[in-house]
Every structure is written in structure tokens, then in C-alpha cells.
């Protein structure tokens, strides 16, 4: 079980209930509800999945089955600044892997893992539709183009001292 133990508050539960209701609590809508829920919480801990299951009339086991099947869903909380490195074909041939390795080296975490201070997490994604800027890195919603391993430190520094 790769989830952090969390205790949900009533307002969190109400939020999940509202999302489920928007989708008419239809079991067929499970994936959409999980998308919306992950968008809100940033990840899908076991406790959240249980409530989703209850609201959608699907067993927690089935919800967990769906969450572990699709790579988009995650049970580990993402960092406050989630770093996504595009490893689509265009970015890859222009050196995305060396950029990825540099991020991993500087932050000392693997793909899909969050730094201890909870600030950064690294994920790979496939093509953001900005191949002209390859290789592309996104931090949250912000896009960085033509990133080279040398530029990685500057990007991290931009967020390191934020807040």
C-alpha cells in the first residue's frame, strides 16, 4: 500500500460527494470522478478511494483496481511544484532523457516520487503539443522550452525559495 495514511475531514468528504453527484453517482462515470477527485486532492489516497467507491456504488477493491490500472492516477501526493518532463518522440530525440536525469540527480528522487520536503515531484508525460520547443518541461502549469541539462538548476532555483 503506497499511500500515506490520511484522515479526511468532513469538508473533504463533502467535496467528493459533490463531485460524485455531478456525475450522477453512475458507476460508469468512475474514471471521470477519479480524474476530478485527483485534480482536487492532487492524488488519490486509499481513504479518498473508499469514499469515492461508496458514493459511486463501486467496491473499494474495484476503485483500487482502476486506480492501479491507469498510470495517470497516483496514490502518492505530488510535490507542491510538480515537474513534468515530456518524453514524447520529439523531446526524446532532442535530449529529454538527459534533462530528466539531471532533475533526478539534483532533486535526488526517482520518477513518481516526491522530495522529502514535499516541494517537488518528477513525472514523465507524453507530448504536450509544443514539439517546436522540444525538449519541454512543465512545472505546474508553466511551460519551459528548449531545456538543456545546464538549465535545470535555474528552473529548480526559481521555486526553491518560493513561499
Amino acid at each position: 500500500m503506497s499511500s500515506v495514511k490520511v484522515e479526511l475531514h468532513q469538508k473533504d468528504v463533502d467535496k467528493i460527494k459533490a463531485i460524485a453527484k455531478e456525475h450522477h453517482n453512475e458507476p460508469e462515470e468512475l474514471i471521470n470522478v477519479l480524474h476530478a477527485t485527483q485534480e482536487f486532492f492532487g492524488y488519490l489516497p486509499a481513504e479518498v478511494q473508499e469514499i469515492v467507491g461508496e458514493e459511486m456504488n463501486v467496491s473499494a477493491a474495484k476503485v483500487f483496481g482502476v486506480v492501479t490500472f491507469y498510470s495517470f492516477f497516483t496514490m502518492t501526493p505530488m510535490g507542491r511544484y510538480p515537474i513534468s518532463i515530456c518524453t514524447g518522440t520529439a523531446c526524446y530525440v532532442r535530449g529529454a532523457e538527459t534533462v530528466l536525469d539531471e532533475f533526478k540527480r539534483q532533486l535526488n528522487v526517482e520518477v513518481g516520487v516526491t522530495t522529502e520536503d514535499g516541494k517537488f515531484s518528477i513525472n514523465c508525460l507524453r507530448c504536450v503539443g509544443a514539439c517546436g520547443l522540444a525538449p519541454v518541461v512543465m512545472v505546474g502549469d508553466k511551460t519551459y522550452g528548449r531545456v538543456s541539462p545546464d538549465g535545470v538548476k535555474d528552473i529548480i532555483d526559481e521555486y526553491k525559495d518560493a513561499e
Binding site: 463501486v58 467496491s59 473499494a60 477493491a61 474495484k62 483500487f64 483496481g65 492501479t68 490500472f69
Partner: peptide, 14 residues
């Protein structure tokens, strides 16, 4: 799941 509606088991991962 379908007959007993217990929901203890499910296929997970891929």
C-alpha cells in the same frame, strides 16, 4: 462482486 456483491476482490495493476 457480481454474485455475492461482497466486493472484497478485484483485479489490480496491469
Amino acid at each position: 462482486n457480481d454474485i455475492q456483491t461482497v466486493g472484497a476482490l478485484s483485479g489490480i495493476y496491469r
